[in-house]
Design a protein around this nucleic acid. Structure first.
Lengths: 139, 139
DNA sequence: CCTTGACCCTCCCTTTACTGGAAGGTATTG
DNA sequence: CAATACCTTCCAGTAAAGGGAGGGTCAAGG
């Protein structure tokens, strides 16, 4: 299989597949013409990677997960650890974003949004010493 | 004021302040020795930037917001638009992360986390065609 | 006067996970 | 045999800085 077909089948852009080879996540064979030749196992790995990435795992996490996947003697605890760490990371991000969202939505609601220049959003950005908003805790 | 004092006062690393000058967000003066010399107005701008960045605005948004801030003839509608777009962006991110979180937390809960190799997390990553998880909708 | 240490300067590399494009080789189709 | 659609590598760029090298400057102390 050439890269185009693989891209089609696993839903990853060809560029990304080449990149994954570059960084050593996959090792497709090469034909006499220099084209990459993908086996089913490569396709499988790429699907694994695509799925892991879509769950937000970093490339390094993906590398670890692939290794664990290949390792028949793995402990599921190791996999779980990776996933839990990532979950914690996601929770942190959600928390940060939720904070921002709250502050921002208050400000947006308070803004008239007309032709006049007065704007509580700008006022908030301008007046506050970092980390001390006027309506609660900031970040 | 030298960059160190400014960094102290506005809570941004000196590196970041230099970077903001590089990309044209601020224009501190220069002393005869080549050192940057910051006015109060620069400090003010930097505080503004720090606050805007902490709310998750992109650098380009910050540039726009600073321009609007400086423009006494602005319409608050323009500011509101920027903020609303950003809010929508945040909501999208929260949505994506929440999706991931849900799938991932299910998987983590289902994983024994012991020394045995069997792992529903790996099974999920390996078995699924992209976008079709076994327990509901994926992404 | 000289040195020491704390500043400051610029410049370049690194990060994450790709994406885009140029320049060129190959395979297929008409 | 040409056009088109593949494929190849390499280089550059993205966001928003962070790290560190190599070197200039400033204030204080001996």
């Amino acid at each position: 299989m050439n890269i185009g077909d693989v891209a089609q089948r696993c839903g990853l852009p060809a560029k990304t597949i080449r990149y994954y080879e570059d960084i050593g996540l996959i090792e497709p064979l090469r034909g006499a013409n220099g084209y990459r030749r993908f086996r089913e196992s490569d396709l499988h790995k790429l699907a694994f990677l695509g799925r892991a990435r879509s769950l937000g795992f970093s490339i390094e996490d993906c590398r670890t997960l692939l290794t664990l996947y290949r390792d028949r003697a793995r402990a599921s605890a190791d996999v779980k650890q990776v996933a839990q760490d990532h979950l914690a990371c996601i929770d942190r991000k959600i928390g940060d974003l939720t904070q921002m969202r709250q502050t921002l939505s208050h400000l947006v609601e308070a803004c008239a949004g007309d032709e006049r220049p007065d704007c509580p959003i700008l006022a908030d950005l301008a007046n506050l010493t970092q980390g001390q908003p006027c309506h609660g805790q900031s970040n």
